[in-house]
Simulated assay, not measured.
Amino acid sequence: MIKLKNISKKYGDFDAVKNIDLKINKGEVFGFLGPNGAGKTTTLKMITGVLKSTSGDILINDIDINKKPIEAKKQFGFVPDSPDIFLKLTGIEYLNFIADIYNVSKEDREKRIEELSNKFEIKAALNDKIQSYSHGMRQKIVIIGVLLHKPPLWILDEPMTGLDPKSAHILKNMMREHVDEGNTVLFSTHVLEVAEKICDRVAIINKGEILFCGNLKEMKMQFQEDSSLEKMFLEITENE
């Protein structure tokens, strides 16, 4: 569960995120939607501790990430908006490095790496350097690393970018399975069709402010019943 209380991020006089209040519950896939530059990535980076908020409180499973960052970060796995990290390592070196950070046992990591690398069809490339990977392969190795310690909370910034259709389908199914077990998934996306199909609730952000938070049924109460998420999204953000 994630709680944001009056979160803001300022860069000089510019308000990147303005006084956000948000609660993301256990057992739900929560979609974070917005146009480019709306504040999605900034908000996710504050939630994960990559950026420090200018004001407000962020609780991860009731742990304040600003006061207890290490304990809070053990609660989640984070897929950033760019997979271009640790490029000099091989895939298996990177996965073992991540497993070491989270104290994943040798037996558990081997089983998990075998399972996930086969699922995402990247096993044959694990001994190659990440810099030789395509964008999609880099995205896969980062996702596998995030899932190694089986975190209860997944935070994914545009996780489908670069994935082939089969891998995207696998990830969407895994997201649903994860929340069906009582866990939580928070992800940002530009692909409204994905959000419409798998999200329990969504928040729409634009110019650093939350314009809507709720499920599609609640959103449709404000619009025509037959409106698609795309039409509602465009109307909400274009009216700003």
Rank of each mutant, 00 (worst) to 15 (best):
S8L: 01
K9C: 02
K9L: 08
K10M: 14
Y11F: 15
Y11P: 07
Y11R: 02
G12K: 07
G12H: 11
G12R: 10
D13G: 06
D13M: 03
F14S: 11
D15S: 10
D15T: 01
A16E: 12
A16D: 10
V17P: 09
V17H: 02
V17Q: 09
K18H: 08
N19W: 02
N19I: 00
N19S: 14
N19T: 07
I20A: 04
D21Q: 06
D21R: 02
D21S: 14
L22C: 08
L22K: 00
L22V: 04
K23E: 13
K23R: 05
I24G: 08
I24R: 02
K26E: 15
K26R: 14
K26Y: 11
E28N: 03
E28C: 00
E28H: 01
V29M: 02
V29R: 00
V29T: 10
V29N: 05
F30M: 05
F30R: 04
F30C: 08
G31W: 04
G31D: 07
G31C: 07
F32G: 04
L33C: 11
L33T: 08
G34F: 01
G34I: 00
G34K: 00
P35L: 08
P35Y: 09
P35V: 06
N36A: 05
N36W: 03
N36K: 02
G37S: 07
G37P: 01
G37Y: 07
A38E: 09
G39Y: 08
K40M: 11
T42A: 09
T42V: 10
T42E: 14
T43W: 06
T43M: 06
L44G: 06
L44V: 14
K45R: 15
K45I: 10
K45Y: 13
M46Y: 09
M46Q: 13
M46D: 13
M46C: 14
I47H: 11
I47N: 13
